[in-house]
């Protein structure tokens, strides 16, 4: 029952969104900050790459957060 890598990242991102969606303030900022802080670059790349093709299945807040997620090459 192991999901494909891209699906797994989508699921993880959505789970994070579920939390920040319930918090006061802008969820997208919280989500992006959390992902930048805890996700290894290849995971962030994986999410950004797969979402460049399609954002299907991604929670709306994650879609909004995408712009704030750092590419591996970008300095912190």
């Amino acid at each position: 029952m192991t999901a494909s890598p891209a699906k797994k990242l989508v699921k993880m991102a959505n789970q994070i969104a579920i939390f920040f969606d319930t918090q006061p303030g802008d969820p997208a900022t919280g989500i992006a900050h959390h992902i930048n802080e805890f996700w290894e670059p290849r995971m962030r790349e994986g999410l950004l790459d797969s979402s460049a093709t399609t954002t299907e299945g991604l929670s709306p807040s994650v879609v909004k957060a995408l712009a704030h997620i750092r590419r591996a090459t970008q300095p912190a």
Binding site: K8, F38, W39, E40
Partner: peptide, 19 residues
Amino acid sequence: DAEPGLRIPNMLDAAVEGT
């Protein structure tokens, strides 16, 4: 390295993926 590394489950995912 200034970037976070992989956590255990992520390591295993990356291994299955081949990286």
